[in-house]
């Protein structure tokens, strides 16, 4: 129905009213950054419950249920092994290529799933955003937490494969270093997810670009080839060295496959990426707080 302008007479008078607004605050206003973080902490019960409930219900439709959490990366690993290991032979010169590949694939999948899930979390939950008043970053944290919970059985399966398949790797105390490494990875994924979530909430098209970006990232992380391949190309090597995912995979490989302590530089780089991404992500996301949920 076309909107016709209706003709209304002006009101009789305009009464100016002075109001003490000291105890009032704007509805739906974005809190100050530190207040926002405090609120986010206050909503931790919501975040945990949301993550747990959705993980439990996630695979209910499938016959094999939660088994797919592990089967998926295993099948992925198998495919890459056949194509890159056997057919293209990129694994030449790498001892225990299967182990090398498995670590790379599983860790990459953790990040890929977390980033994708985080990016979509605000857009997909628009109805929850419109219905309730809570710090929206809770959705991104929840999505990442969910993926971490799903990731734990994945990592255990990965370690099992390394121990069981020949050449069986010995379990050393260095295996415990996987925990801080994955923790840093979680923080990094969260930061990236926060940035993407705000972008996707505004421009949904970006969702279609994310799989391509992830693919490029995967190829640039030395998952199915060795770092040595690019020894003759220092620029490419430099890119590889800066890649946080490569550093993460390198750290875990050192601990698990080569029983050596990873170089402190790898840790430093990974930590810098993680904390940097988290800081940038939180601020960037917080700035857009009032815009989520607007149709």
């Amino acid at each position: 129905m076309p909107q016709k302008k209706i003709h209304l007479p002006a009101p009789a008078a305009v009464q100016s009213v002075a109001v003490n607004t000291r105890k009032l605050s704007r509805v739906g206003a974005r809190p100050a950054f530190l207040d926002y973080l405090v609120r986010l902490w206050d909503f931790r019960e919501f975040i945990f419950y949301d993550a747990r409930a959705r993980v439990l219900n996630g695979t209910r439709r499938d016959r094999l249920g939660s088994l797919w959490l592990i089967l998926n990366p295993v099948l992925n690993g198998l495919t890459y092994y056949v194509i890159f290991g056997l057919l293209l032979n990129t694994g030449r010169g790498i001892p225990n290529f299967v182990g090398y590949l498995v670590v790379g694939i599983f860790l990459f999948q953790l990040s890929a799933a977390a980033v994708t899930s985080g990016a979509r979390s605000v857009h997909n939950n628009k109805s929850v955003v419109q219905a309730f008043n809570f710090p929206r970053a809770a959705l991104v944290v929840g999505a990442n937490l969910r993926e971490l919970l799903k990731g734990v059985p994945m990592l255990l399966a990965m370690l099992l494969i390394l121990v069981v398949l020949p050449p069986a790797e010995p379990i050393t105390w260095r295996w415990i270093l996987i925990v801080p490494a994955v923790a840093l990875q979680f923080i990094f994924n969260l930061g990236v997810g926060l940035v993407l979530a705000r972008i996707v909430a505004k421009v949904h098209d970006v969702t279609h670009l994310i799989p391509f970006a992830l693919r490029v990232w995967m190829y640039g992380s030395a998952i199915f080839y060795s770092y040595d391949r690019f020894v003759t190309h220092p620029e490419l090597l430099a890119w590889l060295k800066i890649n946080p995912l490569f550093n993460l995979i390198d750290i875990v490989r050192s601990c698990v496959l080569y029983a050596t302590l990873p170089a402190w530089q790898s840790w430093a780089l990974l930590a810098a990426w993680a904390l940097g991404a988290a800081a940038v992500g939180l601020v960037f996301f917080w700035k857009g707080e009032e815009s989520y949920g607007r149709s």
Partner: peptide, 17 residues
């Protein structure tokens, strides 16, 4: 129109005290 003509519209002046 009659109702509107009798209306006294409000204009807010926000003060902190």
């Amino acid at each position: 129109g009659d109702a509107r003509r009798k209306l006294v519209a409000t204009q807010i002046e926000q003060r902190t005290s």
